[in-house]
Design a protein around this nucleic acid. Structure first.
Lengths: 212, 212
DNA sequence: CAAAAACCAGACCACTTGGTCAACATTTTT
DNA sequence: AAAAATGTTGACCAAGTGGTCTGGTTTTTG
């Protein structure tokens, strides 16, 4: 069992400092490509100190992962059949795009983790993830059955929403190269509108004026 | 200049052997996570031999990258305004999905490379890529101007096509987890139809019967 | 204020890494 | 068949790795 000493303002502060540095480093160089020493330098602490708070490099990595996942909630999580699919999906896409804009590192780390086989995601998380998926697929299927949106496999719809929105975080280097400059806030707005229109129209929905 | 000794059946054969092993290893563990020793083992050769053909680990990695990129061509590359956008886009999406199914390692390596900042892609490739993009964006824009497809930023449309199709290669671990089993040929067919419908309908096009 | 708990950090270690070198074997060319 | 080019390989190395240990300092607590 991991010891969890209560409170400790210093502990709190230092752990946060280390987590922030680790998130940046892991996002940029991956797990193997990041050394504990480098994280320590970025956090302005000796290496031993990092290992003191997080017992191992992997422990720190998992802590980073969990912190990221805890921030990925959305109104879509609790949507029901009663809700308007156009409204709910548009909101969900907007949420995911905002996360890609504001927390690109998290998305990158998650992507790296999945590409490498997701070996560090706990069974607890995986189980949660599967449950969430089944529940959301259920709602979408009901929308389909009621003829509110086009017939399709709800799994693929969700995959497509994720991939497009996360693309703006994960592949930012490529996007910058191709567009000639880094995407700014206005670009993100436009990309979001573009994606909302594509997905909603692609599902046979019309875009709520709020997102047009 | 890199010496390129003519012919040499042995050379050809060994290099190919090493490239294949390296592709598999890099896709699974990334650049930093793969040791030259491991690649050598997989290729059934001593480490020194690998370094003999490719002067460094990075050299080998770049060779792998170039080999991958050389296979990513499609009919879309040479499409013109005269062509039917529905037909061309549906074909392009199908092509990209087939690559995700048949060559997932390549897609993964490319994704890892981009996430990590694309530092190993040569300027030559980047320039080619930008040119390709501008040319394709031009064609799409003309389709828009002629009212053949919905008004939108062509850049984002292409990003969305890429991200969705590559998602099936890069995030296969997550998909398998969520769907409960690895995607088979039939699943890929269905996913392709689903994506073609989403994108085309999202652009205001109707799906050619061939892809419905 | 003293003891206990928490925190800090240099020295150190076993191990892996990419890469070199020199000697030897094989193939190709003349 | 001699010479030149190409291929093969074990021994070796310097640098970097995650992680431990030990002894100290600071902070918290009774």
């Amino acid at each position: 069992m991991t010891k969890e000493p209560k409170a400790g303002a210093i502990r709190q502060h230092n752990k946060q400092r280390i987590l922030a540095a680790a998130e940046e480093a892991f996002a940029e160089h991956g797990f193997k490509g990041t050394s504990v020493q480098k994280i320590a330098d970025m956090a302005g602490l000796p290496k031993t100190n990092v290992l003191y708070y997080f017992n191992s490099k992997q422990g720190l990595y998992i802590a980073v992962l969990e912190q990221i996942l805890s921030l990925w909630n959305s109104a879509f999580d609790s949507a029901t059949v009663e809700d308007d699919p156009a409204e709910v999906l548009a909101q969900y896409i907007s949420d995911k795009m905002r996360i890609s804009q504001e927390k690109p590192q998290g998305s990158k780390i998650f992507a790296l983790e999945i590409i490498n086989g997701a070996h560090n995601l706990t069974d607890f998380f995986k189980h949660n993830h599967v449950s969430w998926m089944q529940s959301r697929v259920g709602v979408i299927q009901q929308w389909i059955d009621q003829g509110k949106i086009d017939t399709q496999d709800p799994y693929y719809l969700l995959f497509h929403i994720w991939s497009c929105s996360q693309h703006y975080a994960d592949f930012s280097a490529q996007i910058t190269e191709l567009k000639g400059s880094k995407m700014n806030a206005q670009d993100f707005e436009q990309a979001t509108r573009s994606l909302v229109q594509l997905i909603l129209k692609g599902c046979g929905l019309s875009v709520p004026s709020k997102y047009a």
